[in-house]
Design a protein around this nucleic acid. Structure first.
Length: 119
RNA sequence: GCAGUGAGGGACGUCUGAUCGCAGCAGUAGCUGAGGAAAGUCCGGGCACCACAGGGCAUAGUGCCAGUUAACGACUGGGCGCGUAAGGCGACGGCAAGUGCAACAGAAAGGAAACCGUUAUAGGUAUCAUCUAUAAGUUAUAGAUGAUACCUAUAAUAAGGGUGAAACGGUGUGGUAAGAGCACACCAGUACCGCUGGUAACAGGGGUAGCUAGGUAAACCCCACUUGGUGCAAGGUCCGAACGUCUGGGUUGACCCGACCUUAAGGCAAAGAAGACCGCUCGAGCCUCCUGGCGACAGGAGGCCCAGAUAGAUGAUCAGAACCCGCAAGGGUACAGAACCCGGCUUAUAGCCCUCCUGCAGCG
């Protein structure tokens, strides 16, 4: 499954009105579109630390998302012509630095369910 | 041998395998995939575009000498200063052009003057000595001269004033009213002129002169040299949205001009929004050896290809090894992530290795 990345100020601003979900280590927002693919943006602010720590959190989140997308079913609003088609924004909280990969993955699953993106 | 919160250096800074995932390359199998600082962005280049006849000013920087280098404010070697020395540190041209600045203490912080002090002269006062006069009898008073002390004025002086980071050369002799480079000898320093060694900075030594010139230039400044700006989001190619214009088509109209409409009709011009591609990684490249050089480094031979992402690829899980901590279970393995590319500098850094040093213990 191809993952596009969100680019530009407009794409991020559009998601301010999206469906939101929260969990311990992160929050998510998503919105359906007609692109026919999944586009994702991950925000890891400087509150989390320097480049090494921020990179680690971002890569773990991206890895966890890929793992989740392989096994889950999407809600109806996220589909376009029976293909998943939406923009997703993941915002890491400062506590995410201390989390292990497993904790991040669970946290992401929890948040996506609460945002009504997956079942 | 052990220890060290001692110094210096390291082209040391975890390793191996499996599975899943990501990026690049490849027809496939597959191969490759962060650092010594990738960091800070403090200097210097390459490269790119813009500006530019030449010169000057300004701004900013550099500042002992020689070398290395593409270049540098870097590096190497040397000199000088500080230090007993090993060694370390030094923006290390000029304050005997000008201007400015200096807490506290101190008489005074730059004008060599004031003050204290010293000395001479004059005046006054006191005391003493001598002489004279008067009165009286072994004394008193007055005057004169001299000496000493104190006070005042004028002149001379910078020897002395002990404070300070720093006080207008030092020591001695002569000299003088007292003193003073005032004169002389030696020493230190300065300027100039030769000599010797060195490419040079500079070092050694000689002569002459004058008599001394405080500190501070990462204070202004003076002198010498260097210095255009912006940074790969540079810049370029493809492609080409909206806006323009012309032709066409339509409406109005008897027709023409005109006006309005039309964008899934076409042309021209321009546009830099979005996107794709180039720039982009083979380079002042890396490794080994040889030659030259004290060295920085240079030359040669052979071998090698070693990230190129673009909101940004390195992650997850498991197994094992190494080192450290702990009796054990177990825990820990730093600083830190490429963003056009190189050369430096600076800062961060657990542990490991090498050389030297120190301590303790043992042996000879």
């Amino acid at each position: 499954m191809l993952l596009g990345s969100l680019k530009g100020d407009y794409a991020f601003r559009r998601l301010q009105k999206g469906q939101a979900g929260y969990s311990k280590y992160l929050s998510v927002r998503w919105r359906g579109d007609q692109e026919g693919r999944i586009r994702v943006g991950i925000i890891v602010t400087k509150k989390l630390g320097k480049a090494v720590k921020r990179n680690l959190v971002r890569r773990r989140l991206l890895e966890a998302l890929r793992a989740l997308l392989r096994e889950v079913n999407f809600m109806q609003g996220a589909l376009f012509k029976k293909m998943p088609s939406f923009s997703l924004l993941i915002i890491a909280r400062p506590e995410a630095v201390q989390a292990t990969y497993k904790e991040l993955e669970q946290s992401l699953r929890h948040a996506l369910i609460r945002a009504k993106l997956i079942q």
